[in-house]
């Protein structure tokens, strides 16, 4: 399992991570107060849902994964040591939740996650009729899962290639190639 303590690369983890009243709620939630955890949920659900939605590419699945991420956060709160910003920690946990789901889904279909199979990029999961104009969110959702994951983590969330490659279990060069494919598919869809 990935280490949740690792700090999140990219633009998260800023001072804006904690709304003013949140540290107290966070402390109470860590001590086991579900009502305080509700406040934590309210403050972070938009960010967590956004990354789940973009990585999963499916609204219903994203809702389930968002719920799963918060349940996992509740279970692991006692192990959160405050070494990274809570938003970063939670965000990392949400990403791991989605990636685990994608890996499990892939294993169920093919037993081996085709992480180096660039041909997969030629077959988007959601068929978009040629010539259809989509906005960027829709175009991201229509990407194949691996391409979507690389694009969202790199271009949207600001992760470096090395971190993405480690999470996805691929070589850095493969992650870069996948990103190029994802951008290519996106710009073709958006044209």
């Amino acid at each position: 399992m990935a280490a949740f303590e690792s700090t999140l690369p990219g633009p998260l983890g800023s001072a804006a991570d904690h709304p003013p009243a949140l540290p107290a709620a966070l402390a109470r939630a860590r001590a086991g107060d579900p009502q305080a955890f509700r406040a934590v949920y309210d403050a972070h659900v938009g960010r967590v849902h956004a990354v789940c939605l973009r990585l999963a590419g499916d609204a219903r699945r994203a809702e389930e994964l968002t719920q799963r991420a918060f349940v996992a956060a509740w279970q692991r709160l006692p192990s959160f040591r405050g070494e990274s910003a809570f938003g970063s920690w939670l965000h990392r946990l949400a990403v791991n939740t989605v990636l685990q789901d994608l890996r499990a889904e892939s294993r169920r279909h093919r037993r081996v996650f085709p992480t180096d199979d660039l041909a997969a990029f030629e077959a988007p999961v959601s068929a978009v009729p040629p010539g259809t104009r989509l906005d960027l969110e829709q175009a991201i959702a229509a990407l194949p899962p691996q391409a979507r994951a690389v694009f969202v983590l790199h271009d949207v969330e600001g992760w470096p290639h090395a971190d993405i490659a480690r999470e996805l279990g691929v070589a850095v060069g493969t992650a870069k190639a996948q990103l190029h494919r994802a951008r290519h598919l996106l710009q073709e869809t958006l044209r």
């Binding site: 509700r38 849902h49 960027l136 710009q187």
Partner: peptide, 24 residues
């Protein structure tokens, strides 16, 4: 043109329904 579009994506997207009941 893609980076400008990407930067314009909202950082937070509220779910269409309240998910708290399921979590609770």
């Amino acid at each position: 043109a893609l980076p400008d579009l990407t930067r314009a994506l909202p950082r937070a997207v509220a779910p269409a329904r309240d998910l708290w009941a399921g979590i609770a």
